[in-house]
Design a protein around this nucleic acid. Structure first.
Length: 420
RNA sequence: GUGAGCAUAGCUCAGUUGGUUAGAGCAUCUGGUUGUGGCCCAGAAGGUCGUGGGUUCGAGCCCCAUUGCUCACCCCA
């Protein structure tokens, strides 16, 4: 038997209602904040991600689905969407059409990692990017939108963590201070951390190695060395969150894995999923647009993992998607009525009524069971004595009431069904 | 890439110290109502016990290998 590739999965018809509910919640929140949807290709030139996300990151280093296409060009399935959105923004000079572009997306991403609870190789994210403004209100807006979506889904058990990475100059300054602090302890660091000492020293705060943690416990924090401008920016973000009633916690050790962040970084974690508890993450990236060859414009954004969100929703039973119903099921009481029944069914369908009927030659009882299973609001019974008198019976499945109609009085039956 | 656990019907799972024809619930189908669903009752169908080897008179059960899944690490949404 051929099975779905490791880390990918099918979304069966029975799973679709909750996905639809999630997607429509996402779209309505983004629409309330006036973000416009953007769709970009699922694959891009490999270079885009290498430059945009950072060569030293795990995503680029070991998780990308990269291959050569038939012309020998290196192609990569997108592991995240920010790089693609920024590429499209630059390519189409969106900054010339309006000064601030507020964009959102929903789509599939690909990373070759070992699957586990809340982690897949093909997974789905929604997210937003605001390009063209350095306003701290937009940093806060990302968090507010994510939080609003989670609230509308009924999620509790959430923790918003924020931090600031400052501007490059104060960060470089701080990195030197951190290096000085770590130098005497260098020999005790884990081998992975020794590597990061050179490549991305801030990530040492993420380490779960006991030895590293002990050393990092007393390390100086970036937030203590932020310049005036960065502190100011961070303060305004916090004020905006306070004024809109979003509970949050400053986590000075929160460091995002991607290279492009400046100023604000944040994450929302859930206590209702497995160990992969980050439902969303994001931050400001004032250097990325220029880095990818565009104008020197600031940006801020976030991405949220949809499988993780649904997992949290299921564990919390936070919402119950409405069960799917059809308007009408047509039942044949005897054979030889196919033409009338099928013709009438199509006529109803053309009038916007959802209709189904038996295609398996089943008994009346089985047809009624099927009508019940599909949550049909009405059943139209065709056949027998009534039909030979020129009549059909419309049965209301909720209360069992039956009404008799002239079989040619389509409009009256239609009206009766539409009433409900 | 590393580690641990699991693999029996469509689904969720039983299966006693290895011993005849491998079970249940749910779902499916048929009937109880010659033309009427949900509840109930009766019955039916459905399994190379993941795969390949081995031990044994005998393996779903023990051993080895292999594949897959799950969870965790790394890292991330």
């Amino acid at each position: 038997m051929i099975k779905a590739v490791t880390g990918t999965r099918d979304t069966l018809p029975s799973d679709i209602p909750k996905w639809n509910y999630l997607e429509s919640s996402v779209k309505s929140v983004f629409s309330n904040f006036n973000y416009k949807e953007i769709r970009t290709p699922v694959f891009e030139e490999t270079n885009l991600f290498a430059r945009g996300i950072g060569e030293a990151t795990d995503i680029v280093g070991k998780e990308m689905y990269t291959f050569l296409d038939r012309s020998g060009e290196s192609i990569t399935l997108r592991p995240e969407m920010t790089a693609g959105v920024v590429r499209a923004f630059i390519e189409h000079s969106l900054d010339k059409k309006q000064n601030l572009n507020k964009l959102f997306y929903i789509g599939a991403m690909f990373r070759q990692e070992r699957p586990q609870a809340g982690r897949f190789r093909q997974f789905h994210q929604f997210g937003a990017e605001a390009l063209g403004s350095n306003d701290p209100l937009l940093d806060a807006e990302m968090i507010i939108m994510a939080y609003e979506i989670f609230s509308r889904l009924g999620l509790k058990n959430l923790l918003v963590k924020i931090n600031s990475l400052g501007v490059p100059s104060s960060r470089e300054n701080y990195k030197n201070i951190l290096k000085q602090y770590l130098a005497p302890h260098f020999a005790l660091l884990s081998s992975e951390s020794k590597k990061r000492f050179e490549t991305n020293i801030l990530r040492l705060f993420d380490s779960k190695e006991e030895a590293d943690r002990k050393i990092m416990e007393n390390a100086p924090l970036l937030i203590e060395y932020l310049d005036e401008e960065s502190l100011n920016h961070f303060e305004k973000v916090k004020q905006a969150l306070l004024s809109t009633g979003i509970p949050f916690e400053v986590d000075a050790r929160l460091v995002r894995g991607l290279d492009y962040y400046t100023h604000t970084t944040f994450e929302v974690v859930s206590g209702s999923v497995g160990s992969q508890s980050a439902l969303c993450g994001g931050g400001r990236y004032n250097l990325l647009v220029k880095e990818l060859g565009g104008p020197d414009l600031p940006g801020v954004g976030f991405a949220a993992g949809m499988e993780r969100i649904l997992l949290a929703c299921e564990n919390e039973k936070s919402f119950e998607p409405e069960e799917e119903k059809i308007d009408l099921y047509m039942v044949a009481l005897d054979k030889g009525l196919e033409n009338f029944i099928y013709g009438t069914a199509v006529k109803f369908r053309r009038n916007g009524i959802s209709v189904d009927l038996d295609y398996l030659g089943r008994s009346v009882k089985a047809q009624m069971r099927e009508a019940n299973r599909t949550n049909a609001k009405y059943v139209l019974l065709v056949g027998g004595e009534e039909f030979s008198r020129g009549e059909v019976v419309l049965k209301n499945m909720a209360n069992g009431e039956q009404k008799i109609f002239d079989k040619n009085d389509f409009e009256k039956i239609l009206l009766s069904i539409k009433e409900n």
